[in-house]
Design a protein around this nucleic acid. Sequence first.
DNA 1: CCCCCAATCTTGTCGGTGACAAGATGAGAG
DNA 2: CTCTCATCTTGTCACCGACAAGATTGGGGG
Lengths: 188, 188
Amino acid sequence: MAYHHGDLRRALLDAAVEMIEESGPAALSLRELARRAGVSHAAPAHHFGDKQGLLTALVVQGFELLGQALTEAGEDFHEAGLAYLRFAVDHRAHFEVMFRPELYRAEAPEVLAASARASEVLDHGARAAVGAGQDAEMAGIAAWSLVHGFASLWISGALPSRVGEDPVAAARPVVHMLFGRGENGVPR
Amino acid sequence: MAYHHGDLRRALLDAAVEMIEESGPAALSLRELARRAGVSHAAPAHHFGDKQGLLTALVVQGFELLGQALTEAGEDFHEAGLAYLRFAVDHRAHFEVMFRPELYRAEAPEVLAASARASEVLDHGARAAVGAGQDAEMAGIAAWSLVHGFASLWISGALPSRVGEDPVAAARPVVHMLFGRGENGVPR
DNA sequence: CCCCCAATCTTGTCGGTGACAAGATGAGAG
DNA sequence: CTCTCATCTTGTCACCGACAAGATTGGGGG
């Protein structure tokens, strides 16, 4: 066994994502993680310090991916909402940890920076959709709550099964209920 | 030390709620729980089998409380939404476990019964607000997503601090954004 | 070219935890 | 009064996270 793995840090993060997707963040075990990566049980500590450190790194990665996804979604606020949902579903592991601050070091500067960048994209979209003013803030929170709630409920399996298998398709009409269908705000 | 506690089951559930509110469901320890209740480390197992059993009991209690809160909120759909939020904030521990099915036995009959009863109340409210038809289902999901998302974001501390300290007051205008302010649905 | 140093990974250990087994206790039925 | 059984305790095991100390190796300075 080579002493120098090559890219153990990334391998551990990838394995962590896999394990969290299988059985949730609570069940994540650093030792099992090391086992999957083929290293000793203490190897992860070198790269991340402790479990919180690992999850902190995962969260930073998550906020970066989210910011990127929102940016790529472009100007349309509805599409940004659906991109948020797509991110949550496609990166369930990241998403589930990101909004559970007791699991990681939420006050770490890298986390604050990455999350600030992501929410800035969101804010910008809200202002573009509603126009400036006090309403923009509320509209942003409403839209964020809607897609975040839908994503959470979808992931937890709480939504009735007749909404179908594709969360984005199922969410589209729901997202359009907020702000009406263009007739009630959303100048585009 | 009395061998018969009297109402150990309830005492354990109460202590569990307290501990989860302090540091989340992941950090819950059955042994610390037993310590707080003043019993031996194996006493909880007798009442709940294992950790999942304890959380299952907690979730059943949670869905019962939620159904009750929604029922008491009455006919107004907006008020039901705010009652949902109030439940989430006032019973953070229950709420946090209820929507994390990997932590408990979601398929247990008591859980299914309690959750079915709660969502029936929600469904009834949605139909009353929007009228019958296919839209009622979507309206229900939209409203549920909105308040669930707001509650989750509030609890996780993700919302900007300028929304204030009272979640229900902060959410009221947000909830009213969906369905407009009575002019766009919500016949009452 | 070689050696040393520092980053990387391993081995060993400790206290804490969940689950299980076996035993002690006492409340209530008869 | 005694038996019975639900309730709780004691004891144990494997696993986990954190820490300490040691082994290995790649790369840069001599």
